[in-house]
Design a binder for these strands. Structure first.
Length: 950
RNA sequence: GCCGUUGUGGUGGAAUUGGUAGACACGCCAGGCUUAGAACCUGGUGGGGCGACCCGUGGGGGUUCGAGUCCCUCCAACGGCACCA
């Protein structure tokens, strides 16, 4: 008989029932954590801070405080990071695990307009509501570090960082940001010259042609300086949405050219706006992706978005017209195949090129083009259209005349807005040329195998244009590309490219060039609910930064904060801050009058640096103290960043850009902000529509045979997002009230891998709930409430199972594969059902392993077991080592790959002994009978495979 | 079109990373408790065969003593970008 220690229920749980009363238990432990400030994180310099511990910074993408509240999909990522945070604390890390709110932006303002309350009020209310919902999930945030981007104390530093950008430029020689005062020095010393926004160093060819900086008028000097700033004002083509009264980012516009919010039409037009010079960082933003551990998909998306390509820029002189057409191409090797030029309908040189005979045709085309453009931005399946300008270019190598066409597939926003068209080797040029009967010239020959496969000989390949587009091959070799001084024939594409560029550069016809899809970041909005710019406008366009001491520039209180909605697309936007009192708008400094900037920053501004503020959220002197920043960022920055994949480009690209500027200026210590990124999946749900297409409440739909019925009528089911409007939303509060927070947390994790999307199924939740019930019954006598933990340790089968569970669960925890970890723990718990008492080692290991995921029940059982320290203070590695001490291991014995027996051997047994033992096992001998042993394969710790012949 | 990811029972998903495929859970079936239902508890559940056994990880081929896992090829699904020269 094993001796049994029974602990009676501890006095402080007094009235607690013997059955698993999760609501009372969870409430008790949440209060306990709160009272004892268990999750307060100390900073370097704080009393009691332990600098010997390694740090771990685990961060969620902070949410938008929406008025609709959370549904069960939202906490998925938060639960995952919370498990990481709790687990890492048990592993002996100093863990930074904060939460805050990204509360500025269009949706908050729109919501405020709908409800008629000031956004400040609604935002505050929404934040409070979300905090209480998050707290109910048992998340171990350090709430003392909570921040909201809308707090003046926070956006003071958002404005400050903007000023860092404003006071910096990108140095082309050093390839990093330096201060504007540095640039002034360089210009004074004549190390750089500047003209029309071009910054040339003394090494560059154009240098000597540019005027001396000191020779410019003072205003010109300032103008040139302003054009170098990382934050600058420029007239650019923007998405102007009069219906919303603001300009929008590309991604806020739908494919039909309407606003994502409100579905108002959006117009392209040039407007003076604030821009951030993200393009100067394009190369580093690509290159440094190698430094981070991110999902391949996200890295790929960022690379695509930046869209780097290598090629050449070359000029085609116009025939009998002054001037030349500059084009960009990635295939300079196909220059001999250029049979026409194509320019964008928005090309600035159109008017000089169009001849009087062609003008009517061009006008007609332009009319159709404008109309088409207003209807749709979506180019898919649209037939390419164009019109001849009447003009010709001179081919720089052959000196032949080639026509210049206007083509709607040439985009003004990329390259130079003009291309050399090589119809023989470009799908689009091919389609266009075919439609308008423009000749083609083959200059790339596919490999022999390709020709053989397609049963085409060289001559007919060159001669037959119908096959050309099909036959576009990247890895062919050049042909028909000879001229005076150059002969590319026979060279593979890569070589031909290089040689052509070298030739063009030598002849002064072109130069090699790198091109990007990435555009500078349009940074101003005309809405109210955003950070005001810390900028003053003086006379003659003079820009002045607000003194650091005068930050923050707080949002002026407005009674009417609605945007100015305009009917006429040609009207200029009216910033909401224009409605502020004159006393706010006008500033006088040193007898100079200034007007405040009236635009506000876009939604992304606040989220570009919040991960830095979390480290030191109450610092009044600086955006983050450098000592604290160095500790928490360490080598890799944020150790784990979890959020949805929808932020793969925008937020993550913008934040990286700001971080790199701050890095260049010496304000932060790592090149990259987020060392490891993890995209959690979405929780999907079924929604149901009746025959009119109206959504019906999902929880009232009945499943009968193959049909779904609502109020006796058949309804259509589809899988998608969860949302109030789809009537399939489930609030975490409901689930927690019914099953408890631990069940909820475990269930969300148990649904499947965290990174995968999965379907919410409220029915399946009982499985996890039963598990916790069984766990409780294994540990606590349902009659007496006594704890059923033996003082004895496990033996035999249970010991083996414990070892296996500890090994696998540890691995799963490290890989964030919580569904698999939970399954292992359920399996171990199921073995305990037959036991009258839980062996003490299993009891302790079980609670230690489970507690990051289901902390409340584990704390309770831990306390009832009479453990001295609180569970979350317990160090897991020490316990794990203790449990894993073992002297016996189990091996599988196979004969020709088939399992024949299991044997137990001493952990330190030699290879020969093990093999002998395996061969002599009864069940194995049978299969060896009259056969020869060819070889014996021993896989340490796992199996012995005996290979036999005969 | 380009890039990326993934294919395992009725379902969600495991498989010690090349070593007993289907752990664990839902669902389903049987039983218990109950006046009855809900809830709860116990057992069974890939396919075929009375059986020892045989077949099974999208299809085909390969490497290996051994393949869900590695290689080649085809197919299918999901996601992102998309007239980017």
């Amino acid at each position: 008989m094993p001796s049994v220690a029974s602990f009676s229920a501890l006095s402080y749980i007094g009235a607690m029932k013997a059955s698993y009363d999760f609501l009372a238990i969870e409430k008790k432990w949440r209060e306990y954590w709160n009272q004892h400030r268990c999750f307060k994180t100390l900073n370097p310099g704080d009393p009691g801070f332990d600098a010997s511990k390694p740090k771990y910074y685990v961060l969620d993408m902070f949410p938008y405080p929406s008025g609709k509240g959370l549904h069960v999909g939202h906490p998925l990522g938060y639960i995952a990071t919370d498990i990481v945070a709790r687990y890492k604390r048990m592993l002996g890390f100093n863990v930074l695990h904060p939460m805050g709110f990204d509360a500025f932006g269009l949706p908050a303002e729109q919501y405020a307009i709908e409800t008629g309350t000031h956004p400040e009020v609604t935002t505050q209310k929404n934040i409070e509501n979300m905090i209480s919902q998050l707290k109910a999930c048992g998340l171990s945030y350090d709430w003392d570090r909570m921040i909201s981007t809308t707090e003046p104390e926070y956006y003071r530093w958002t404005q400050w960082i903007f000023l860092q950008l404003f006071e910096s430029y990108f140095d082309p020689k050093k390839q990093k940001a330096l201060s504007i005062s540095q640039l002034r020095k360089f210009l004074r010393n004549d190390e750089y010259r500047v003209s029309d926004g071009q910054l040339c160093s003394d090494r560059e060819a154009a240098f000597s042609e540019l005027p001396l900086f000191s020779s410019l008028r003072l205003e010109q000097q300032e103008e040139e300086i302003n054009r170098q700033r990382l934050a600058y004002i420029d007239a650019v083509n923007v998405n102007w949405c009069p219906g919303l009264g603001t300009v929008l980012a590309n991604e806020e516009v739908t494919v039909d050219g309407r606003s994502e919010r409100g579905n108002f039409p959006v117009f392209q037009r040039p407007l003076q706006q604030w821009m951030l010079r993200i393009t100067t960082y394009a190369d580093r933003l690509i290159k440094d992706l190698d430094l981070v551990e991110w999902p391949e998909a996200v890295k790929q998306m960022q690379k695509n978005w930046i869209g780097r390509s290598e090629g050449a820029s070359l000029s085609f002189p116009l025939y009998e017209i002054k001037g030349e057409l500059e084009v960009y191409t990635t295939r300079p090797d196909t220059l001999y195949g250029a049979t026409f030029m194509a320019v964008s309908p928005e090309h600035p040189m159109l008017s000089t090129m169009v001849t009087s005979e062609q003008k009517p045709h061009v006008d007609a085309f332009m009319k159709r083009y404008q109309k088409q453009k207003a209807v749709s931005k979506d180019p898919t399946n649209k037939e390419k259209e164009g019109v001849w300008t009447g003009a010709y270019c001179i081919h720089p190598l052959t000196q032949k005349k080639i026509p210049v066409w206007i083509s709607d597939y040439v985009l003004m926003g990329y390259g130079t807005g003009a291309i050399m068209a090589v119809p023989a080797h470009d799908q689009r040029d091919f389609e266009f040329a075919k439609k308008y009967n423009i000749p083609m010239q083959t200059v790339v020959m596919p490999p022999q195998e390709w020709l053989a496969q397609h049963r085409i000989d060289k001559e007919s390949y060159v001669a037959s244009p119908e096959t050309l587009s099909e036959a576009f091959v990247e890895y062919g070799h050049a042909c028909h590309s000879q001229g005076s001084g150059i002969d590319l024939d026979g060279q593979p594409t890569n070589e031909a490219k290089k040689n052509m560029i070298a030739y063009l550069e030598a002849q002064g016809l072109g130069i090699s060039k790198v091109s990007y899809k990435l555009r500078d970041w349009l940074f101003s909005r005309q809405r109210y609910w955003g950070e005001p710019f810390p900028i003053l406008h003086g006379a003659h366009g003079k820009l002045r930064a607000v003194d650091e001491a005068d930050l923050p520039v707080t949002l002026p209180p407005l009674k009417d904060f609605r945007p100015q909605v305009l009917e006429d697309q040609n009207q200029d936007p009216v910033p909401s801050l224009g409605k502020a009192e004159e006393s706010w708008k006008r500033v006088e400094i040193e007898d100079q009058r200034y007007q405040r900037e009236l635009n506000t920053m876009p939604q992304w501004a606040g989220s570009c640096w919040y991960y830095l503020r979390f480290m030191d959220p109450h610092n009044q002197e600086s955006f983050v103290s450098s000592e604290i920043e160095k500790y928490w960022m360490g080598e890799n920055g944020v150790d784990l960043y979890v959020g949805g994949v929808e932020h793969a480009v925008l937020h993550l690209l913008y934040a990286r850009f700001w971080h790199k500027v701050l890095y260049d200026l010496g304000k932060v210590s790592t090149k990259e902000p987020f060392g490891k990124l993890f995209n959690q999946g979405y929780i999907q749900a079924y929604s149901y529509q009746d025959e009119r297409g109206m959504y019906v409440p999902a929880d009232e739909v009945e499943h009968q045979a193959a049909e779904f019925m609502f109020e006796g009528k058949s309804v259509q089911r589809q899988l998608g997002k969860m949302g109030k409007s789809l009537k399939n939303s489930i609030a975490p509060d409901e689930v927690i009230e019914k099953y408890g927070c631990d069940t909820f947390r475990l269930y969300e994790m148990y649904l499947g891998p965290v990174e995968q999307s999965k379907v919410w199924d409220t029915e399946a939740i009982v499985g996890i709930h039963r598990f916790l019930g069984r766990l409780w019954r294994n540990f606590v006598d349902s009659e007496s409430g006594d704890i059923l933990v033996s003082v004895e340790e496990s033996t035999g089968k249970l010991k083996t199972a414990l070892h296996h569970t500890i090994k696998t669960v540890t691995e799963y925890m490290d890989q964030m594969r919580y569904n698999a970890a939970i399954a292992q723990l359920i399996s171990l718990n199921n073995l305990l059902v037959e036991q009258s008492h839980v062996p003490s080692d299993i009891a302790r290991a079980m609670l230690l392993m489970l507690s990051p995921m289901a902390p409340h029940i584990c704390e309770e059982l831990w306390a009832r077991m009479g453990q001295a320290k609180s569970l979350h203070d317990e160090a897991w590695p020490k316990a794990r080592e203790e449990f894993l001490k073992s002297d016996v291991m189990e091996l599988v014995v196979q004969v020709n790959g088939k399992r024949r027996a299991n044997i137990e051997v001493a952990a330190d047994a030699k290879k020969e002994e093990i093999e002998k033992l395996a061969c002599e096992h009864e069940a194995v001998k049978k299969h060896l009978a009259d056969k020869n042993i060819a070889k014996v394969i021993y896989v340490p710790g796992r199996l012995v495979n005996i290979v036999v012949k005969g």
